[in-house]
């Protein structure tokens, strides 16, 4: 059996799962299961949020190791569900390696993404209804929708416009959101500056990082949990800093 190819398959699967936003234990367990299904019981897998290491010893006594660096990524549930079902299938059917690799390579090509207008609609809907949920009026909700669309554009093109780290990008988005909400209220569009800002900031709030950190702790991956938690704290600080700047500028209107 070609163990190099098998290891490559497992590492690819882990990489895909990690970039889709899966928890560490899911990544480790999936890779381990694939390797076990193909007959390697002595596989060692270690993953932290930005790195995966797999090491196996072949029956001939040769050991092979693969390491993958994971780039910064968002959350992509569609990719996660597809990888998960392929992983289940590989573990039960044990397809030939070339076929398995072809199926895995197929996933990003087959995967559907929302077009930019639909994505922006999502970025608008979320703050709009959060503002309504916290008790805002109809006009508050509409201005939150517009601010959400602006944040969506910034997030989408932000990596090109602001090539700096995510801290700066979050702070910038937060500053724009909390500058625009007093502006809209000043123009007579909406009445509650705080509700509009909070609705818009919900897009940036580190909910995913907090939830993931807790799930890592639950699974016993403390290092990953600490790194996710510090990510969440940094994100919250970035939001507060950006909002402070935007708020002060907006108040001068």
């Amino acid at each position: 059996m070609e163990y190099d190819v098998l290891l490559e398959l497992a590492a690819d699967m882990g990489c895909r799962l990690m970039t889709s936003g899966a928890e560490i234990y899911r990544v480790e367990e999936s890779m381990q299961r694939i390797l076990n299904a193909y007959g390697l019981s002595s596989a060692e897998v270690f993953a932290i949020p930005n790195c995966i290491i797999v090491s196996v010893t072949t029956p001939e006594g040769r050991s092979i190791t693969r390491m993958r660096r994971i780039a910064a990524h968002g959350t992509d549930i569609e990719l996660l569900e597809r990888c998960n079902s392929l992983c289940r299938r590989l573990c039960t059917e044990v397809l030939p390696l070339p076929e398995a690799r072809a199926l895995l390579a197929e996933i990003p090509r087959e995967e559907r993404h929302f077009s930019l207008p639909v994505l922006l609609l999502g970025y608008g809907l979320a703050p709009m209804f959060f503002t309504a949920m916290f008790g805002g009026t109809l006009f508050d909700a509409v201005s939150a929708f517009l601010i959400g669309v602006v944040i969506g554009l910034l997030q989408f093109y932000g990596t090109r416009l602001l090539p700096a780290n995510s801290f700066v990008r979050t702070a910038f988005c937060s500053a724009v959101a909390s500058f625009l909400s007093p502006l809209f209220v000043h123009l007579g569009f909406g009445a509650h500056i705080d509700l509009i800002s909070i609705g818009a900031l919900m897009l940036l709030v580190p909910g995913v990082a907090i939830t993931n950190a807790m799930r890592e702790i639950m699974a016993g991956d403390t290092i990953s949990a600490i790194s996710q938690m510090s990510d969440a704290l940094l994100c919250a600080v970035a939001i507060a800093l950006g909002a402070a700047v935007g708020f002060s500028v907006g108040r001068m209107l």
Partner: peptide, 12 residues
């Protein structure tokens, strides 16, 4: 609002 977020997270 969750519907909006499910679009952002590419859920289907």
């Amino acid at each position: 609002a969750c519907l909006g977020f499910s679009i952002i997270f590419n859920m289907r």
